[in-house]
Design a protein around this nucleic acid. Structure first.
Lengths: 187, 187
DNA sequence: AAAGATATTGAACACTCGTTCATTAATTAT
DNA sequence: ATAATTAATGAACGAGTGTTCAATATCTTT
């Protein structure tokens, strides 16, 4: 029981149209009517799938988050130093954001709802937790670990927002250095 | 040269109407037309002052931020321990958010634009910087201080978002304890 | 290949939006 | 108090919104 081809076609057309329009104008200026005109679908059909223009973006967002989770699973260079171990995986996040920079420029802009921030937070949070579980010995763990995890997640998200403000000029490597410095503080 | 009374009256009516409507329904469901009907002002007049419903909220937001800055200026209990010194002022933030809980519930909700978060960040950031300047001796300062300040700001904002998610159930005191614990990490 | 299921279409509806403009009303300055 | 200034009003506009419904087109199942 797979999805109806017509649905897939409609959604693909809408996503394509949105990405095309986003190169011309900000999200707020894109009307449903215009989006449907470009996508060559009826406006009524739009409402069968989405509530508003953001709905189409959220769909795309899900694939991006899925891609982030996937790239986290992949192996990456690991040093022997404990602190770096905990944090080595996090550079993947920076590479991911850099890769989808055009998208994150929208996600982090002032007019965009907090929704995306929260979802990214949850994702990064699960990464940090995972890293902790990998590198902590049992006697190393304590009740405050949960708290540390959140703390570090906030540090990462904060770095990303700062990066956004600087228009993604800092290199991924420097960003990662800053993060490692943060983590050393929170050792 | 003060502001025309009619302008003040119009803006007050709009703010009052918005606060009234916000008790009934979420911000997204409030149309300009309805807001004007409640405020008993012409819809055309609305556009002389604001661009959208969020504009009215932003106006109110400015007074709230001003109030936060004011309460930061007021004296507060100071301990003799350095770490607590740096952080003692920050409990004011928690009290402030608790005081305007109804408002922050909106500010931090998924559908609200990042705008408010960024402004709050800047404000808290200036507080943290100020605290550092107060409590750090000159030889204590180094190039990484700026970085520490941002780091701690992120910790505070992260705590606030966490607080929001838990519907502001945690007490201000416990929240402050958690913050002090964070800061001790980042000593 | 035909039948059944379901997605898309187009048209229509009342409504909101953002803007304009001449008219009226309220406020400020003289 | 009067004149000058400026804000608010009401009406109208073209466009977008969100929804409905019967008719049509497309896909899936047998």
């Amino acid at each position: 029981m797979k999805k109806d081809l017509r649905i897939i076609k409609t959604q693909e057309n809408l996503r394509r149209a949105l990405l095309k329009l986003l190169k011309e104008k900000p999200l707020e200026d894109i009307s449903i009517t215009e989006l449907c005109r470009i996508a060559k679908i009826n406006r009524g059909t739009f409402y069968l799938h989405y509530k508003d223009v953001h709905g189409v973006l959220k769909d795309y967002w899900e694939t991006i988050i899925a891609d982030l989770k996937e790239s986290y699973e992949e192996p990456y260079y690991q040093t022997n130093f404990k602190i770096e171990n905990v944090q080595a995986d996090m550079i993947k996040i920076f590479h991911h954001v850099k890769q989808y920079q055009d998208f994150y420029q929208i996600i982090f802009s002032e007019k965009t709802p907090m929704f995306y921030y929260y979802q990214l937070f949850e994702t990064v949070h699960s990464f940090v937790r995972d890293s902790f579980n990998k590198s902590l010995t049992d006697d190393n763990k304590n009740l405050k670990v949960e708290f540390l995890i959140s703390y570090q997640t906030n540090a990462i998200l904060g770095l990303l927002l700062e990066w956004h403000k600087q228009d993604y000029e800092t290199s991924v490597e420097l960003l990662n250095e800053q993060l490692i410095y943060s983590i050393r503080l929170g050792k």
